[in-house]
């Protein structure tokens, strides 16, 4: 099941937006305007865009600290997202969450999680809620190969299987658990093997191919909407940048990174497909320039926004503000 040319252009645009957004974040981080740690998903954009195109606005997404691309593809406002990066009151979380906790409930984006595997048990409940209400809503969780080794992952997969909830577990295997290569963290050749332990259908997909990703997620979505339960998708991909800004990347060779960049960059792969379908280079450049303009606008909006008033510290802790 391929994408139409219009869909593929849409996907291309979402991927360009994610990359431009993160490059801007990197710039702002180096200027000291983005605080904390910045975990970029450069190289993994097709996984995000392919998934988002297979979902409805009302479907749910829980992502992780490498989730900017997922949330942008699912439709979070770039302005609100960038304002969040700068800790402004106009941010999607009023500046309280930062890079790792983007939320937009109007787009089905639940709070992103910064604990490795923290969102997996939660997605089971989020999916179950829709099932109990008789909705055909699905809930997607993104996690990495590192999270695959957390206990919470296995507890969540087991629960999802016994309760047959409409959840989709997307494991983005980028070959490195932070700074440790996958060969040192598991004996599994493919992480999809893990799903068999819970009798959960699993598929392995080249997640640098946005069409392949979209097809895999679409199939899982169909199963979930039909009430046939969860699916595990191993999205094989590669992070073209460090785990976070400042990562020396001594755990992998420059040649390896360069080879992925030259051969497997998902944005270039999608662009090549579009060219092969007769889309002009000028059209692609216009899409890319549109993404750049959106990011520039978001950055300008964010910079012009106010910081939250300090009194906000006590708001949103409890329903009626902080206690004691």
């Amino acid at each position: 099941m391929g994408l139409t040319t219009e869909q593929l252009k849409d996907a291309y645009g979402r991927m360009c937006l994610a990359r431009a957004f993160e490059r801007k974040c990197e710039e702002l981080f180096m200027q000291g305007q983005v605080r904390g740690s910045l975990h970029m998903s450069i190289g993994q954009e097709a996984s995000a865009a392919g998934t988002a195109l297979a979902l409805r606005d009302s479907d749910l997404l829980i992502t992780n600290y490498r989730g900017h691309g997922h949330a942008l593809a699912k439709g979070i406002s770039p302005r609100a997202a960038m304002a969040e990066m700068l800790g402004r009151v106009t941010g999607c979380c009023k500046g309280k969450g930062g890079s790792m906790h983007w939320t937009d409930m109007s787009k089905g984006i639940l709070p992103a999680n910064a604990i490795v595997a923290g969102g997996l048990p939660t997605v089971v409940g989020a999916a179950l809620a829709g099932k109990l209400d008789g909705l055909d809503r699905v809930a997607v969780v993104f996690f990495g190969d590192g999270a695959a080794n957390q206990g919470a992952t296995h507890e969540a997969m087991n629960l999802a299987a016994i309760w047959k909830v409409p959840a989709i577990f997307i494991c983005e295997n980028n070959l490195y658990s932070e700074m440790t290569p996958i060969g040192k963290t598991t004996t599994n050749k493919d992480l999809a093997e893990r799903a068999a332990a819970y009798r959960m259908p699993a598929t392995i997909v080249d997640a640098n191919d946005v069409e392949a990703m979209h097809a895999a997620v679409s199939e899982a979505v169909t199963r979930a909407r039909r009430g046939e339960g969860p699916t595990f998708i191993e999205a094989k991909t590669y992070r073209l940048v460090g785990h976070m800004i400042g990562d020396s990347q001594i755990y992998r060779s420059k040649d390896e990174v360069e080879e992925w960049r030259a051969q497997r960059d998902p944005i270039r792969l999608a662009g090549d497909k579009l060219i092969a379908r007769g889309v002009t280079r000028a059209e692609l450049d216009a899409i890319s320039a549109g993404a750049d303009a959106t990011v520039a606008d978001a950055a300008a909006f964010a910079s012009a926004s106010a910081f939250p008033d300090v009194s906000e510290i006590f708001v949103d802790v409890f329903e009626h503000n902080a206690l004691n």
Partner: peptide, 8 residues
């Protein structure tokens, strides 16, 4: 609740 700026 707090991380999401009160959205959940």
């Amino acid at each position: 609740r707090q991380m999401s700026g009160g959205q959940v």
